[in-house]
Design a binder for these strands. Structure first.
Lengths: 207, 207
DNA sequence: TAGATTGTTAATCGATTAACAATC
DNA sequence: TAGATTGTTAATCGATTAACAATC
């Protein structure tokens, strides 16, 4: 176990490992090697071993990794074994789509509050969650100990939503709006804007 | 202008530059420096200059970059100035959300065909586009010269959808399903799975 | 034991940043 | 001209991969 700073690239691969390990687990596979993982995930086996070794010695030489044990460990590392409340702002199509993923997330992360200021949305329900007006955001974050905020509003409103999240005291933000938002340094932001994905794909078209 | 291989990291930043340049353009800003861009986008100005310099000399020493000219150039580089037809498979919540973004994409990339095999979806319309059964996918790709495929089906079906896209002859795939799909090497795949984003965010929570 | 596979070090590769001459 | 800012080289930093002793 090292105490080096873990790079973002490493952290981003852990959920990918976890996902495949869960698949293996459902198929009752007991053990997996870095070789197997690498083949399936298109990654170098040495990289996978190194990634895992940052956090501990999880494998057995000559054998590989115990699937269940590794799942447990990665869930610990990612803090997915504790309940994490998530709030979402923006009850449009994308927001609703994300709320429906609640069901799929077997881990303890759940969207527990939805906000939107448009009058035709406030009061409606998505997946048994009522849509609340933005003025209740800060209070709810505090009362329900919400730690992560998701932004699915148009770009023009993303910054002001981020500001409210910060005021409420979330620790991290997942931003789907196509704009770079500014937040205090201690708050982690991940951008998940698929227009960027799509546009960079175009670059690789044949001509 | 270099002829070096351009790294993926560079290509992924170009749409981000483009986005902000479009904002500037709407505000009638004529000129922008790498300094300005860096401030706004949280990037090192040297990096921005270097990224752009891979493709040509777009700036003027002592002045900066002409906003309109740079927009034009980046659109050329990303091939966003040619019409690109996109097909989407999976008319669930996420699929519908993406179709609604058609309106926002000012560039010439458009979702022009939607597919889904569930009987309650075939025949319905999303944004004036009819949902077609999967058996029509390959034919439509060829007839409508579709070059990019978007996958918004559950993980269990993602690989078979990818196979069909490949059979039809798309050049690139944007995969929203939480699974690594296998395609021939010449086809570009970008993964846009937000469960991974969300799980890696959890790592950065305070404890 | 022989074969397999880890954890880790060293080597390589690539990406970011600093610095500055060129020049608008 | 003086100040600003590019394009580019060199320096730095960081991430990936290869190799192998340790060991199950």
């Amino acid at each position: 176990m090292k105490t080096e700073k873990i790079s973002e690239a490493v952290v981003r691969r852990l959920p990918v490992y976890l996902r495949f390990l869960n698949e293996l687990n459902m198929k009752n596979v007991q053990t997996v090697s870095s070789q197997d993982l690498g083949n399936k995930l298109d990654l170098n086996p040495a990289q996978i071993r190194k990634d895992l070794a940052y956090f501990g010695e999880f494998g057995k030489k000559g054998i590989g990794y115990d699937v269940n044990y590794l799942i447990e460990k990665i869930r610990q590392i990612l803090k997915l074994n504790q309940d994490i409340a998530v709030a979402l702002v923006g009850a449009g199509n994308l927001g609703r789509a994300l709320c429906n993923y609640n069901v799929y997330l077997k881990d303890n992360m759940k969207i527990t509050a939805i906000f939107d200021d448009s009058p035709d949305k406030v009061g409606t329900s998505i997946n048994n969650l009522q849509v609340h007006p933005m003025k209740e955001l800060v209070g709810t974050i505090r009362e329900e100990a919400i730690r992560i905020g998701i932004i699915t509003v148009p770009a023009s409103e993303a910054q002001s939503v981020a500001d409210e999240f910060v005021r409420g005291g979330v620790e991290a933000i997942l931003n789907f709006a196509p704009v770079i938002i500014k937040v205090p340094m201690h708050i982690r932001v991940h951008n998940a804007d698929f227009t960027t994905d799509l546009q960079s794909l175009a670059y690789y078209l044949d001509e």
